[in-house]
Design a protein around this nucleic acid. Structure first.
Length: 584
RNA sequence: GCGCUCUUAGCUCAGCAGGAUAGAGCAACAGCCUUCUAAGCUGUGGGUCGGGCGUUCGAAUCGCCCAGAGCGCGCCA
């Protein structure tokens, strides 16, 4: 069930359009761009005027004269060149709000076409530190995972670890270079492993022979050399442990911890299949699939390199086959930055030629890179990338300054305060990222992740905390939420805003765009703050009004909490403040 | 050279299945705490929507051209 106000108006519109012989494609309303004139507007008459060769105002007038008969209409007008402005009756909005408040999904429906979707939003590499570049895909992916699940899809989130390429050979080579063998590998922890990788990286950049050695070791590892495999397994285990800790701090979760290595066996099958189907060719010693025909020629997919190794084209294609065959995926969605756009176009086209994923939707959601002030992908001053843990700690430090010290307030010891610190800091970081549309890259401003005012996660948490406070007071005074009555304009605006939930969630789902939810959540919190300022609840004057306002407030709290949940953000029950807060 | 993405307020960004006065946040300025948490609220200023041409009754939104930015272009993932 969805309790969208538009639905009722749209149904009436469709009837009227039919009756008048008008194209029902235009029989819909949208939230008005002119709240001073109306709640909803219909621009259908303008669109129809073109083909019908009629005056749009005449068409609009005909629609309006029918619409007048509807019981939910308060006022109607035709304005400008032919806009139909519709204002709803207060009672209609109020009753709808009551229904939403009593609905366990808060008026939000589910998808008509539930299916299994695999999300690929991780991609951290073994032995490499996690940095701010990993923030976007993880945070966005987690949000999409929750949104998809909420609207009724069966979701599997896969981390798709980078655990099988040349970097693995590089690090093993570096360890052997220092130790002479791999006997000590199992004693190394993640910090040591990371150091080895850094050194290996530098060496391979400078020294062509070192690179060649790394390639040979990689090939031997993939070929199944027992000693190399055992050492690699340890590196992988240690990395996964560290990666899990990092993701846990941000509440980013995965259902599967597959990696590129898991696709290795299937890679062979892909190459064989390509040969059988006649879609691959041998070229300069490599096995490739050409993608030159059609109106958009692309560089070829390379299945097997001339040295016999597979590329990440091959592992990605093999992984798609596994997700389709073993996981029964009906849709697979990737989240990576725009630098991989061409790669996935190639992979998807290769998959199509191979016919291994018929009727499976393959999507690549491209997001912009996290950029520095210079407009280029973010680097710290020393040329490196900022560690994810450093970012989180920095934000936490800032939060701690605005909270009381442990023990200062009864019932809030070290554990309680630290939990609050973490919830607020993580909200600041994740919201800062999620409020940006996926498509555009954004400039990484360190300070932005420790801002708590304006369009931020903590702003929304604060609105929730204030409502919780009111709800506690209401309970202490025996005040119960009851039927909504709309008198003040702030109440009306808030009720209309609350009814938009279904559309917002569905759009976020369809477009795979969490910023739509972030925008709405902020806007709702803002609308509530205005209401909160103008409409006292506990001292409303009479019980009916107080109960109505209490229902509105509680509903806002529930919707905000749900929206933050869909974004992967928790809200603390209360938000304490340090005594000297704001006195600088 | 070819391809992809982009250019909107001082800064960071929304808006783009064409539509009525182009919106937020930050920053600036002026107000609001003896009333439910001021991490808040109210108000003011700030824009030739990169430039040009075209389609249209109507273009930030669609098409073409130009300028600028970022990214990517067969054996690194």
């Amino acid at each position: 069930m969805n309790l969208l106000l538009e639905n009722k108006i749209n149904a009436a519109m469709a009837d009227i359009f039919n009756q008048l012989g008008l194209d029902t494609r235009f029989a819909f309303v949208k939230v008005s761009d002119r709240p001073d004139l109306s709640d909803f507007q219909c621009n259908g008459a303008l669109a129809l005027a073109k083909t019908a060769h009629k005056n749009p105002r005449e068409i609009a007038a005909a629609i309006v004269s029918e619409l007048q008969k509807c019981d939910f209409v308060e006022t109607l007008s035709v304005d400008g060149p032919g806009f139909i402005n519709i204002k709803l009756k207060n009672e209609f909005i109020a009753q709808n709000t009551d229904k939403i408040a009593q609905d366990e999904r808060l008026g939000c429906g589910t998808t008509e076409n539930p299916h299994r979707v695999v999300l690929d939003y991780g991609g951290p590499n073994v032995a490499k530190e996690m940095h701010v570049g990993h923030l976007r895909s993880g945070v966005i992916g987690e949000a999409i995972r929750r949104i998809e699940r909420f609207i009724g899809n069966d979701v599997i989130g896969d981390v798709h670890l980078g655990d099988w390429g040349t970097p693995m050979g590089m690090i093993l080579a570096e360890i052997m270079r220092q130790d002479g063998n791999l006997d000590k590998v199992t004693t190394y922890d993640i910090a040591q492993i990371t150091e080895f990788y850094k050194r290996a990286n530098i060496r391979c950049k400078e020294d062509e022979t070192a690179k060649e050695t790394a390639r040979k070791i990689t090939a031997a590892l993939q070929d199944g050399d027992a000693v190399l495999r055992a050492a690699w397994q340890h590196l992988r285990n240690e990395s996964v442990k560290a990666i899990k800790e990092n993701y846990a701090k941000l509440d980013v979760n995965f259902d599967l911890w597959w990696g590129e290595s898991d696709a290795h066996e299937t890679c062979g099958k892909i190459v064989e299949l390509a040969r059988q189907k006649g879609v691959s060719k041998v070229d300069n010693g490599a096995v490739i699939i050409r993608l030159e025909e059609g109106n958009k020629p692309k560089p070829p997919v390379i299945l097997v390199k001339s040295d016999g190794g597979y590329t990440y084209h091959t592992t990605d294609i093999a992984t798609i086959k596994m997700r389709v065959d073993d996981l029964k995926a009906q849709e697979i969605v990737y989240f990576t930055d725009s630098r991989q756009a061409l790669h996935f176009e190639q992979v998807f086209e290769g998959v199509q030629k191979l016919g291994i994923a018929p009727n499976v939707g393959l999507k690549h959601i491209v997001f912009g890179t996290v950029n520095g002030a210079d407009g280029k992908p973010f680097k710290t001053r020393d040329g490196g990338v900022m560690n994810l843990e450093t970012l989180i700690e920095m934000s936490k430090d800032k939060v701690r300054q605005s909270l009381p010290k442990a023990g200062e307030i009864e019932g809030y010891g070290e554990a309680e305060i630290e939990k609050m610190v973490s919830q607020i800091a993580v909200a600041a970081i994740k919201f800062q990222d999620l409020k940006n549309t996926i498509n555009s890259g954004y400039v990484f401003e360190l300070d932005d992740f420790a801002k708590f005012e304006g369009k931020t996660g903590p702003y929304i948490q604060y609105a929730i905390a204030r409502i919780n406070s009111v709800l506690r007071k209401a309970q202490a005074n025996g005040l119960e939420p009851a039927n909504v009555v709309l008198q003040a304009p702030e109440e009306r605006t808030l009720a209309l805003k609350l009814a938009q939930l279904h559309n917002v969630v569905m759009r976020a789902h369809q477009e795979k765009e969490p910023s739509i939810i972030a925008d709405y959540t902020y806007s709702l919190a803002q609308t509530f703050s205005t209401f909160y300022n103008a409409c006292p609840i506990m001292s409303a004057g009479n019980t009916a009004l107080a109960s109505s306002r209490l229902r509105l407030a509680k509903l806002v709290r529930d919707v905000l909490t749900l929206m933050l949940y869909l974004l992967g953000i928790e809200a603390p029950e209360v938000m304490l403040k340090a005594e000297n807060k704001g006195e600088e």
